[in-house]
Design a protein around this nucleic acid. Structure first.
Lengths: 242, 242
DNA sequence: TGAAGTTGTCTATTATAATAGACAACTTCG
DNA sequence: CGAAGTTGTCTATTATAATAGACAACTTCA
C-alpha cells in the first residue's frame, strides 16, 4: 500500500475494492449478467489506480464471481449452482444449502393427454388424462430452470391450483398425502435454448441448456410425476456422487 | 506478505496477529495487567517472524491496548474508561456506551451513624442513622472503582438488601420511588491506594487512585445519598465537558 | 468504415510487508 | 554479581502493493 495520507490498516486496497464489489453483487446492486462499471470508473469511485481495480477484479474472477470480456466490459457471473444428483433431490434444499433463497413460479397449468412415451414413464395408458405444469425455479432472483411436469389428472386432481398456491412440488405431493419420494432414472442431455425458454430464463439466444428428464416415484416404486427440465447451463453445475 | 505457500489474502500477516491478540484481550484470555507471551513465543505460535509480531504489538500499543516494558515483557493495558462528568452520570450507561458490560457487586452493607460531615452533606443531624454500602463496580471483568455510599436509614430502610439484589444504585432508588436524580458538587482528588482497596480493585500497592466525593440529589434538590469513590487511575479517565 | 470506449499487457518506480541475523539495553532472579 | 530472558534497534534482502504511463487488442455503435 502506498496510502501516504492514511495510517496503514493491514488490509490491502485491492481487497477493499474487491469486497466492495462483492457486496454489490451480494445485495443485488449488480445482478447476474450485469455489466460492471468500467475499470477507470471503478478506480475513480474508490480513488485508487486502475491497476488496483484490476487486481480486485482478478481476485473476483478467480472465484468465478465476475468475467471480463476484452473490449466490452466486466460482467457479473451468475454463480453456478452446485446441483448434486442423488435419488433424493430437492431443489429448495439444494438452493438453500448455498445460502440462497429458493423460489418457484407457476407459468401455466393445463390439461393434457398422455403420449405413448409419457404413459410408459407414468405407468398409465396412452391417452390417459394428465395435468401439465410449466414452472420456473429461481435462486434469489436468478432463474435456474424451466420445467414441464406431468402428473396423472386422476391421482392428483387440481394439481395446478395446488402448485400455484404452494410453489413447490414437494408441498404439492404432501397435499395429496405423499410424504416422501425418490428420483428414478435421470437422463441428461444438452441443447440450445429456444426462444420461449430464453425469455423465461432471461437467457441470451443461442446459449446452451442442460436438459434433464426424470421420473419421481414414491417409496413403493409407483411413478408419481415425470419432468422435462431445461437448466441454464451457465448457472448450474450438476454433481454426481463418486 | 511473503507467504509463498499460500495465496495472498489481501490482509497483512501482522494484522492477523494483532487481531488474534486483541481477541485474546477481549475475551479475557489475557486480562488487564497480564504479561503477554514473549515476542519469540508469539512468533512461534503464529509461525511468523519476530519482527512481524513486533509490528502487531506496535499497532496494539498505539491504540493503547498493550504496553511494552523493555527487558520485562509486554503487558495488557487496562483500557482507560472514558468517564464524562455531568450532572446526570450513570455508571451503567457510561460503561455500556463503551461496548463493555457494567457490573456491580456488593461488598458489605452496614448500619452507621452520621458524622458532622456526612450529616451536612445529607441534610441530616449529626448522629442520624445511616446505611453504609461498600460496593465495587466493574466493566466486564475489570474493577473500575470501589465506592462507599451513605443513605439515610430512615428514608431507605433495608437499602443494603435492595442493592444486593439489584446491584445498581439507580435501581435501588427506583425501588424507593425515586425516578430520577442528579449529581451535585463533585470533588476530585488523587491518592495512593490502601491495602484494602488494592485487593478489591486488583491493583498493585502504591498505584494512584482518583478519589471522588459527590452527593446526589433528587430533582427538588433534596439530598439522597453521598458517595466516596476510589477509582483505579490507570483504568479510568474523567472527561469534563467544555 | 471509423471513432470511442473497453480490457489486456508491458515497463518502471516507490512504499509497504515479511523475513533474517546480530547485538544493545534492560529486567528478573538465583 | 552474573546468567537468562526480555524488548529495542540496526542492517539487509526479497516479495507484494500501489501508482503511473503507454500502447495493443478487441467490442460497440453510429
Amino acid at each position: 500500500m502506498s496510502m501516504q495520507d492514511t495510517a496503514s490498516s493491514g488490509v490491502a486496497l485491492w481487497r477493499l475494492v474487491a469486497d466492495g464489489i462483492e457486496r454489490g453483487i451480494a445485495d443485488g446492486r449488480f445482478a447476474a449478467g450485469d455489466k460492471l462499471p468500467g475499470e477507470m470508473e471503478i478506480a475513480e469511485t474508490y480513488r485508487v489506480n486502475r491497476h488496483t481495480v484490476r487486481r480486485a477484479l482478478a481476485a473476483l474472477a478467480e472465484r468465478g464471481l465476475v468475467r471480463a470480456e476484452r473490449g466490452s466490459g466486466t460482467y457479473v457471473e451468475a454463480q453456478k449452482l452446485a446441483y448434486p444428483l442423488r435419488s433424493r433431490t430437492r431443489f429448495s434444499e439444494i438452493v438453500g444449502a448455498g445460502g440462497r433463497e429458493p423460489r418457484g413460479q407457476l407459468i401455466e397449468a393445463t390439461d393434457d393427454v398422455a403420449t405413448r412415451e409419457l404413459a410408459r414413464e407414468l405407468g398409465l395408458k396412452a391417452g390417459a388424462p394428465l395435468v401439465r405444469i410449466e414452472a420456473i425455479r429461481l435462486a434469489d432472483r436468478t432463474p435456474i430452470c424451466v420445467s414441464t411436469t406431468w402428473l396423472s389428472a386422476e391421482l392428483f386432481p387440481g394439481a395446478g391450483a395446488v402448485f400455484a398456491a404452494t410453489r413447490s412440488m414437494t408441498k404439492l405431493l404432501e397435499h395429496y398425502g405423499v410424504r416422501d419420494y425418490r428420483r428414478g432414472a435421470t437422463r441428461i442431455t444438452a441443447g440450445i435454448v429456444d426462444a420461449t425458454d430464453a425469455a423465461r430464463l432471461d437467457l441470451a439466444l443461442g446459449r446452451p441448456i442442460l436438459v434433464v428428464d426424470a421420473t419421481d416415484h414414491d417409496l413403493d416404486g409407483k411413478p408419481l410425476m415425470t419432468k422435462h427440465s431445461r437448466f441454464a447451463a451457465e448457472r448450474v453445475e450438476f454433481l454426481v456422487e463418486s
